[in-house]
């Protein structure tokens, strides 16, 4: 009996582990999983091989090898579309560059040279096919975060400079990451993110973005990283103080931050509601008129005014 209980308990624990594993099926950090390594030669006649296949969920390392004979001055930067990743430059001196991805998106993706080299047209046909996996384990994307410290925001001559850092889960900098900046803009009752620029992180994972606001007051700045290779997406919103450039130049007295313009903005906020109300009113009148036409057909049926002998 005791051994039966023990067996049942073991089974329950095993079941619990299976369920947990099922929720997050054998996902392991990208760095912990063994990578599928692929080599692509960049030759005088094109890419070799042109097509590579990997299984979905695998950590993949693609190494591009400069292998020219007749074109010693060729240099290339290889990009893989769909995964937003690009290699370091390869040339006669630096012959190898590796990109890493977690192949989490199934489909066909192009890899190609992104420089205007002599062989440019021959180096546009690389294809990475990510086949839907058998349901086995997969590598997880490395978590990332964007950091903008208060000290990283400075204002001079009406321009706001923001230094955004892109870091991985071990606070290591991520270079070559594209960070897109937005401000939360509201107009006539609606609000949304309006893109105001994009910057790429340098070797220490920092992107410097300069913005010249055309609005006054405190603005909500959102920085977004859409993910790249083995890195997951992340975003951060911070408040930045803003004033018009000409205000900084001529002083606050020219146009106060909260003046008539603010009233106009508030007035515009009412516009959509007013428009919808007006249209609704017109349609209500249509219904009333059609009701009159319907009443015409009921006259004489004993309803109000329904005296057929009139």
């Amino acid at each position: 009996m005791k051994s039966r209980r023990l067996a049942l308990a073991s089974l329950a624990i095993l079941l619990a582990f299976t369920v947990i594993a099922g929720v997050h099926p054998l996902a392991t950090p990208a760095v912990a999983q063994e990578a599928t390594k692929i080599t692509v030669k960049v030759t005088d006649s094109g890419l070799d091989p042109e097509t590579i296949e990997v299984e979905q969920g695998k950590l993949v390392e693609i190494t591009f090898i400069w292998d020219h004979k007749a074109y010693p001055n060729e240099e290339h930067i290889m990009v893989l579309e769909g995964y937003n990743v690009e290699s370091d430059k390869i040339d006669a001196q630096h012959k190898e560059a590796t990109i890493k991805i977690v192949a989490n998106k199934p489909g066909t993706f192009t890899f190609k040279c992104d420089l205007e080299c002599d062989l440019h047209d021959f180096l546009q046909n690389g294809v990475l096919k990510v086949k839907t996996g058998s349901g086995g384990g997969g590598a997880a994307l490395t978590k990332t975060k964007i950091s903008i410290e208060p000290a990283a925001i400075s204002i001079k001559d009406g321009k706001v400079t923001v230094n955004a850092s892109l870091l991985d889960d071990k606070d290591q900098p991520i270079p070559k990451g594209d960070i897109t900046f937005f401000i939360n803009q509201s107009f006539a009752g609606r609000s949304g993110l309006v893109e105001i620029g994009e910057e790429r992180t340098g070797p220490v994972g920092q992107a410097r973005f300069v913005y010249e606001p055309t609005l006054t007051g405190t603005l909500k700045l959102t920085a977004k990283f859409e993910g790249m290779g083995i890195y997951d997406a992340s975003e951060l919103a911070v408040d930045i103080p803003a004033s018009r450039a000409f205000q900084a130049e001529f002083g606050e007295s020219v146009l106060p931050a909260s003046g008539h313009s603010q009233e106009l903005v508030e007035l515009k906020d009412w516009a959509p509601a007013a428009l919808i109300s007006l249209i609704a009113l017109i349609w209500a009148a249509f219904i009333f008129i059609l009701y009159q036409a319907w009443r015409v057909s009921r006259v004489g049926d004993g309803g109000p005014g329904g005296d057929a002998s009139a």
Binding site: A285, L290, Q292, A293, R295, V296, S297, V299, A308, A310
Partner: peptide
Amino acid sequence: GVRWRGLPEQRRRLELGGTIMMLMIIPL
């Protein structure tokens, strides 16, 4: 024809609807 027989009540309702439409259609 909505069972129109030219009765006074029918004419009244048609005139009411028509007048409102006339007034609305110009600004529209």
